[in-house]
Write a protein that binds this DNA or RNA. Structure first.
Length: 687
DNA sequence: GGGTCACCAGTTTTT
DNA sequence: CTGGTGACCC
């Protein structure tokens, strides 16, 4: 069924360990995916029913790939019934079936970031008129953080250190109450409520424990306390929990992931078998040596070192550049040279950086040189205003109690219900303690509402009810949506708002993408509904065009630009790791606020281990930031890389700059500028 | 209800 | 230097 002989001894041990807790520490490039798929195939071969296996991932993409790989190995039918899913999708499924036990209706809405923001902003303004939207974001951040730690609205305690936390303590309970009134849950609730559901209803817990006898979790180093708790609950009955991860690649601490969860696994689950995968099949020896040397400086970690049976390869280069523009030019030069020399495609090159704003200089230079490139990250499809507007309509159609979205569309496109009228409607809803939607159905209850407004409200309600009826016919959904958009005159509205014709067209195309996504969802789902579509959209599941695009992007023949975070799990023959400077890597915030240099080092480690053959580290000695030129120091991580694997090019890369040297750098800099005007193809001063 | 202007702040972000 | 936000004015 599968080729177990091609696995190395550790990999084979992992595949053959079926019962009892297993901690699989899988270093970067150690063939982890192959082990996971083989292990699932092995379980099936041993007679475990597909339906008894639960495999958890963090991304839809990972889930999809895992399913495909297993299907390839054992055939489509053998995989039927197996649950391979992200934490969030699994929780949506569980909640869809049982959320009524928590007092919600099953057609609940999922609030993603912008919905949450709207709500928190409103509540915060209610309490503190002078609160800014930035404060709101911080409050939302704290609420999310609390939920990730299973801290409920009434258990949250403000700390004296953080003034915002007092606002959070006030707002969090109201936020949660409103969500319930709107029949909505937010992203973190998906997990937190599922945990609560299972904790409070032993029959359900029992059911899922019996159902899932074997569990596997990928990227375990990125789990947060709620996810940890969920797994703990599910695994309690059988204890066949296999977690796969690499503590050295834990880089989502800022989102609640806690590296100690993987570090404590063996103490948490008695009789844990630990297997380390350290043989690397991706990178050259020099690259691995650099990676090992850097990560060794972290103290709170599992001891391990990557090694390869292949050669040591080319040395790593470190280029100290003049400024950000120079840094970008150096990369271009190397892309040209290496591409020609090694006969590589553009897609074999990746430029990685710590913050998305760093991409700019590279984009400009790539454009200038006519090198095709793709930028991963940046604005998400569902963040676009026009997309959010359409989605808001759909959300209200499935769940009229969804007040955030109801308010969003109440007068968009304009239909004569201005802020004053909206305020009156909201106030009436509050005093009568009835949902806004009910008030809209009886606008005559509202005092001081003009006849014209009254009519507008009634027309709006009538229209929405009409379309809600039509959307119940799932097969017709794309047509219904097209009709709705036509009736709303969305096109006109966008042409009116957007002076630039090209931009208007692009926005309309985005709206069309929503219709397309709906159509493709219809094809794929065996039991489609509008609500089901919206769930997929909220989870950014395969139906989402934004997601699709990311994959398409990686298939194009183009140089790839992305943040270090986005690069995890990927590999490229040639990698440029830009901005190796204090302030970027490690980032200023981690130096001065979160004090988590270890996570920055892991980020650096992730970047280094993306490279297969060729790695170039770059940094600038001065950089244009917020308009003015700033002096920069080389990253402390550079010193940790042993000299024998790295060529330090440019000037005294690691000597701290003295005043004298700064002066010489300055004159060098101006010389560089002058040479720009003198030569057309300038040989940059630092190469 | 919408448009303009001044001001402010400026990580990472799988779902 | 940018993009986003809020106040203010038409």
């Amino acid at each position: 069924m599968f080729d177990i002989d091609r696995l190395n001894p550790q990999q084979r041990a992992a595949v053959e360990h079926t019962d009892g807790p297993l901690l699989l520490l899988a270093g970067a490039g150690s063939g982890k995916t192959r082990v996971i798929t083989c292990r699932i195939a092995h379980l099936l071969q041993r007679g475990v029913a597909a339906g008894q296996i639960l495999a958890m991932t963090f991304t839809n993409k990972a889930a999809r790939e895992m399913r495909e790989r297993v299907e390839e190995m054992v055939g489509r039918d053998a995989v039927k019934g197996m649950v391979i899913s992200t934490f969030h999708s699994l929780c949506v499924q569980i909640l869809k079936a049982h959320i009524d036990r928590l007092g919600f209706k099953r057609n609940f809405s999922i609030y993603a970031s912008s919905d949450q923001q709207q709500l928190v902003r409103r509540l915060l303004k209610d309490e503190h008129a002078d609160a800014t939207s930035k404060d709101a974001d911080q409050v939302l951040w704290q609420i999310s953080d609390a939920k990730n730690r299973l801290i409920g609205p009434h258990d949250f305690r403000a700390t004296g250190l953080n003034p915002v936390s007092h606002w959070t303590a006030k707002v969090y309970p109201r936020y949660q109450k409103e969500l319930k009134a709107f029949n909505a849950v937010d992203f973190d609730d998906l997990l937190m409520l599922t945990v609560r559901l299972l904790e409070d209803h032993s029959d359900l817990l029992d059911y899922y424990q019996q159902k899932f006898r074997y569990q596997m979790v990928d990227e375990y180093q990125d789990t947060n306390p709620v996810q940890y708790r969920l797994l703990k609950l599910l695994a309690a009955a059988h204890g066949n929990l296999c977690v796969v991860g690499d503590d050295d690649q834990s880089i989502y601490g800022f989102r609640g992931a806690d590296v100690n969860i993987i570090l404590n696994f063996e103490h948490d689950y008695a009789q844990t078998r630990i297997i380390k995968l350290e043989q690397n099949y991706r990178s050259t020896g020099n690259i691995l040596e650099a990676a090992n040397a850097v990560i060794k400086h972290n103290t709170n970690r599992k001891e391990k070192a990557l090694w390869t049976a292949d050669g040591s390869g080319a040395a790593i280069d470190y280029l100290l550049c003049e400024d950000d523009e120079d840094e970008a030019r150096q990369v271009m030069e190397r892309i040209h040279a290496v591409r020609y020399d090694k006969d590589l495609a553009y897609r074999d090159f990746a430029i990685l950086y710590r913050t998305n704003s760093q991409s700019r200089a590279f984009e400009e230079q790539l454009r200038y040189e006519n090198i095709p490139f793709v930028l991963i990250g940046g604005q998400q499809f569902f963040d676009r205003k026009e997309v959010k507007d359409v989605i808001a309509y759909l959300k209200v159609l499935t769940n009229p109690f969804d007040e955030v979205n109801l308010l969003r569309i109440l007068n968009y496109p304009r239909r004569g219900i201005g802020t004053t009228s909206a305020d009156r409607l909201i106030r009436t809803s509050a005093t009568l303690e009835r949902p806004l939607w009910q008030i809209l159905k009886q606008p005559e209850l509202v005092e001081d509402l003009g006849q014209k407004t009254c009519d507008a409200v009634q027309n709006f309600v009538r229209m929405m009810e009409h379309y809600r009826g039509r959307f119940e016919n799932a097969q017709q959904m794309p047509t219904t949506l097209a009709d709705l958009l036509k009736e709303l005159k969305f096109d006109d509205e966008i042409y009116r708002q957007e002076g630039d014709l090209g931009r208007a067209r692009r926005r309309l195309e985005n709206i069309e993408e929503v219709t397309n996504a709906l159509a493709s969802y219809l094809e794929r789902d065996d039991n489609p509904s509008l609500n089901g579509f919206l769930d997929k959209v909220s989870l950014l599941d395969e139906v989402a065009p934004g997601d699709d695009k990311k994959e398409k992007k990686l298939n194009e023949d183009a140089v790839v630009l992305m943040s270090l975070h986005s690069s995890k799990g990927l590999e490229f023959p040639v990698v440029f790791l830009a901005g190796m400077e204090e302030g970027y890597l490690p980032h200023t915030k981690s130096i001065h606020e979160t004090f988590d240099i270890d996570e920055e080092r892991r980020l650096c480690y992730v970047g280094i281990t993306r490279a297969q053959r060729n790695l170039t580290l770059l940094g600038a000695s001065r950089r244009r930031k917020f308009g003015k030129l700033e002096q920069r120091d080389p990253s402390r991580f550079l010193v940790e890389i042993p000299d024998r694997v790295i060529n330090r090019l440019g000037r005294d890369a690691l000597t701290p700059s003295t005043e004298e040297e700064q002066e010489s750098k300055a004159s060098h800099f101006f010389a560089g500028i002058n040479s720009l005007f003198a030569d057309d193809e300038d040989k940059s001063p630092c190469s």
